[in-house]
Design a protein around this nucleic acid. Structure first.
Lengths: 132, 132
DNA sequence: ATTAGTGCAAATGGTTTGCAGATGT
DNA sequence: ACATCTGCAAACCATTTGCACTAAT
């Protein structure tokens, strides 16, 4: 195992802060493109490439959580540190963090039963929320 | 709910059969590109677009199971009808079908607890198999 | 000064689509 | 004949990368 990356960042980046703040304005998963558009609408001038690069760096730094949407794009969201999964609304995109000890156990047990090691699992729940 | 698509296919397609057979030769998930390459190596001449189109049609027809690899490509595999999840080896790609009644229950319960309806879930286990 | 951070435009790479020709019924 | 199936090449689109430039230390 490797340590939770001790934030080995370079110098203080203005854009990075702006991107983080934009992301903080959302409470669901957004794509790099979404973030880029949102920033331009707020007069913030930033290159799409920078958004992509920064978002990736933040994921590696453990500041963001990322997952792939049903259409294949990578989406990001500020995230609490502990392990959890998501319950996403297919209509409005609202995402809730949910925990499932039962699932974790099951994943470990199932993998072990088949001789698999270093298991990582993906669990995403998609549904229609009560507002729709 | 809608019925499990009663195979509303058009006429008998030679290529479709060939693609299905190629896929039958694998026991793990393969991308459209993989299938295409495999077919050319077996003298079978087929267009990449046809492979993509056919694969999609087969998924809609319920003949194939598809999932997105960690790199974002869509991969396919002939699949048994009933609901299940996968345990995939990150080294060799070997994929086992696993069932998890506990997970299904949890998913339903969790979604319901938050007022979500028409829930669908994704569960994928990735690990290193005993051969590696 | 040095070097990480950034923007822009060009390059990638998987997937989709338009259209003309081949094929099954 | 007629509609579907195919192949090819062009189009798409999210993401990545090369390079010159700006800004933080």
């Amino acid at each position: 195992m490797n340590a939770p990356s001790p934030a080995p960042r370079g110098r203080t980046s203005t854009k990075r802060a702006a991107i983080a703040e934009t992301l903080a304005g959302f409470d669901d998963f957004r794509s790099a493109q979404d973030v880029h558009v949102a920033m331009r609408q707020t007069d913030q001038r930033v290159g799409l490439a920078t958004v992509y690069r920064t978002l990736q760096a933040m994921v590696e730094g453990g500041e963001l959580d990322s997952l792939r949407s049903e259409t294949g794009e990578v989406t990001y969201r500020l995230c609490s540190g502990s392990h959890h999964h998501h319950l996403v609304c297919r209509v409005c995109g609202k995402a809730l963090e949910v925990r499932g000890p039962a699932v974790e156990k099951w994943a470990e047990a199932t993998a072990a039963a088949h001789g698999f090691r270093e298991i990582s699992h993906t669990v995403e729940l998609v549904g229609t929320c009560s507002d729709h």
